[in-house]
Design a binder for these strands. Structure first.
Lengths: 137, 137
DNA sequence: CTCGAATCATTCGAGCTGTAACGAAGTTCG
DNA sequence: CGAACTTCGTTACAGCTCGAATGATTCGAG
């Protein structure tokens, strides 16, 4: 949550600040099309119909959460639960026409002025290398 | 939430992965002393008695949240609300003896094997520079 | 084929988080 | 002084998230 006392002061804070920037941009784009961040996360992943479980995997969250978010999207007519052919337990979540149109607008908003774009490519590459190293040690 | 389509693929994911690592360590340390991450965040900041507002500022969250978390800590006898001398609106949140002892154990846990420690100092410095640059552009 | 284990989605309970609105207390200014 | 504004903490409400438990279905071992 804060420093963690062990790395040089500031690194942790900088990492949190960077992800906060990313979150803010995503949430702002979601809000611009009338969605919450979580709902937008789901819509974002629904390029094609997915089972609840697979959708949860791609959204990086647990199944109950997917149920909750899909409920809200279904109430608004943006997605529909379809029976899964060949597995009567499972369901396929698919965007409706309205949902698909909204997904297009979401992507358009996301492409507009994303964070970290001011950083030169060389720096971005260096950042990737360092973060990758940090995560694999 | 995910890529954001505009930076090189992976940078966003790496940043989220890094902060997830930090969160996981903090939550694990909190759990080790019987606290949730938010509760531990509050305890962490309570080096001295603070007003609700100031505590919220340091925890990086809104006032209602502080009320909620302090409620739980107070129920467990880890903190107490004291009247603020000189401002009858405000309260001072202070650790009890039990709370202070638990805070010590929290810090001990946090110091034990923190993330990103395997990274050489040079890399850490480079990371700081790059993140700082990314945030100020 | 049948019974037990695994998997799917859901529900429940708890906690976290924010915005809006509130009453109480302090501050400012005519 | 007294009215208007601000600030303090709280409450109410809505949404997000997870772990545990549940019922339905599928799969696998014998």
């Amino acid at each position: 949550m804060t420093t963690g006392e062990g790395e040089l002061p500031g690194l942790t804070a900088l990492l949190y600040a960077a992800t906060a920037r990313l979150d803010a941009h995503f949430a702002a784009c979601a809000g611009a099309v009338g969605l919450t961040a979580s709902q937008a996360n789901a819509v974002h992943e629904l390029a094609e119909p997915l089972g609840m479980r697979e959708l949860g995997r791609r959204m990086c969250c647990e199944p109950p959460n997917v149920t909750f978010v899909v409920d809200r999207l279904e109430e608004r007519g943006l997605v529909e639960r379809r029976p899964h052919p060949g597995d009567r337990r499972a369901k396929l979540i698919a965007l409706t026409a309205t949902g698909a149109e909204l997904r297009e607008r979401l992507f358009a908003a996301l492409a507009c002025d994303p964070p970290l774009t001011g950083l030169p490519d060389a720096d971005r590459r260096a950042l990737r290398v360092l973060l990758d190293r940090a995560l694999h040690t």
